[in-house]
């Protein structure tokens, strides 16, 4: 059972969190100018790195989304921070 640091609530067990997205993915829009391939890539293609990953997670109990950097091999959590413009 991993412990994740919510920037607002501190360390909590992983069952309180949901993965949301890989960080840095930009939603392609407006829709009419986006090719099928680009949209499919946005929806389904992830880097899923072996090693350090930068991801958006949500702490379901407080409802806040945040950025977490973690190592997918060692399970080490490197950092977590509020979304830009949000107090941490």
């Amino acid at each position: 059972m991993q412990l994740f640091p919510c920037p607002f609530c501190g360390l909590r067990e992983e069952t309180e969190f949901h993965f949301a997205a890989e960080a840095g993915k930009v939603r392609p829009e407006p829709a009419p100018g986006v090719s099928d391939a680009r949209w499919a890539a946005y929806l389904y293609l992830n880097d899923a790195p072996k090693g350090v990953a930068r991801e958006i997670w949500v702490h379901r109990t407080c409802g806040e989304f945040f950025i977490m950097e973690r190592d997918t091999v060692t399970r080490e959590v490197i950092s977590s921070s509020a979304l830009p413009g949000r107090a941490g």
């Binding site: 949500v58 409802g63 989304f65």
Partner: peptide
Amino acid sequence: VASVRLILEEARQDRFDPSRVVL
């Protein structure tokens, strides 16, 4: 209810100014 709220919450924080709308 919970999943709908999460969709709204994600858009609120990721796309809009969260100080202008709360859930």
